[in-house]
Design a protein around this nucleic acid. Structure first.
Lengths: 189, 189
DNA sequence: ACCTGAACACCGTTCAAGT
DNA sequence: ACCTGAACACCGTTCAAGT
């Protein structure tokens, strides 16, 4: 009856990130310490430093994984404003699903691949219907609105106020998003 | 030539908050520890616990002070959408001026007075031109956009990307804000 | 009433040492 | 190549003790 050594021992970047996301979601950002992650993986804290050079870098790759998760749920044939709309909803859904995801994104860095590959690719798809400048402005605005909305919602003091104007279908958020996405296209109701 | 005892000694809540804001602005959120604040006030760390019951409460009142600073700069005769517009710009200006203000707001709580007095008063002024529900939705959206925008901007990795579409006059932010404030009023250009 | 000294548990990080 | 043990400086918080 030896200890299950081989199973618990093989640490990987992906395994560490998965454990981090699980802890983030179940216990919140305050609980997301290196010691807590290491403990969940049956390993000592310094072991994590072989895979990540700092806690900041680990956080960056947690945010990276969350972002990829959002993109994976989006129909690859979408472009332009429809893509903006769907991206906003998917980001929002992810931040509503994973506790403290928005808080983590607020303080985490952005990985090389996201900055140099995924975001440019996303911008190209958006720019099928508008200029590159417009695409960049719109994407920035949507990310800002979504992140800020989730951050406010995570705050116990403000969330009560927000719920008074935002039903379970997230109508208020969707309304604000539509103003940013479809902006000048809209008419008076 | 005695030490200036009487001056350095009289600690107040306001003095602590002022010191905290100065450190936040000059050294960033990571440096905003109780030890650092106490040191700036020539006092030991536990002394702060006589004025605030925790670091979280202190942060709440720092955010409180920042919010009041924003309100102070707004013409009290403004109402409705013009108030929304001015409030957005004032919040944004404050978050651009004070380093890491947006990050602090992201993690800080909301004080009683802000939640029960200042925000309701603000909503009343906004609701002169629209329904209370619309006022609440609009204020939430504007706070979310502004906070999220500043958070993204504070991130070294994303700020470079953002600057490519946002000039010094903050045009991209203002454009997004106008979509939220004036929404359905707008026509196609 | 107001502040300190000392102690506590915890944190991120480094590094020599083991395998 | 991969992980541990031990140590470091720092953190928030508590509390008896001083004035």
């Amino acid at each position: 009856m030896g200890r299950p050594k081989a199973i618990d021992a093989d640490l990987t970047r992906e395994g560490i990130i998965d454990a981090a996301i699980r802890i983030l979601n179940e216990e919140g950002l305050d609980a997301l310490s290196l010691a807590r992650i290491a403990n969940a993986l049956n390993v000592k804290t310094p072991a994590l430093y072989w895979y990540f050079k700092s806690k900041a870098e680990l956080y960056t790759y947690v945010a990276d994984a969350l972002f990829r998760g959002v993109l994976k749920g989006i129909d690859p044939s979408l472009t332009g404003r429809d893509l903006l709309w769907t991206f906003g909803l998917a980001s929002r859904a992810n931040q509503r699903t994973t506790r403290d995801a928005a808080k983590l994104i607020s303080i985490a860095g952005v990985s090389e691949e996201i900055r140099t590959e995924l975001v440019p690719a996303l911008l190209d798809r958006i720019a099928k219907e508008m200029t590159p400048i417009q695409a960049r402005k719109a994407l920035t605005a949507i990310q800002a609105l979504t992140l800020g909305w989730s951050v406010f919602e995570a705050n116990p003091a403000t969330s009560e106020v927000m719920r008074r104007s935002n039903d379970d279908g997230d109508a208020a958020y969707r309304e604000a998003l539509s103003h940013l996405v479809y902006g000048e296209i809209h008419r008076e109701p």
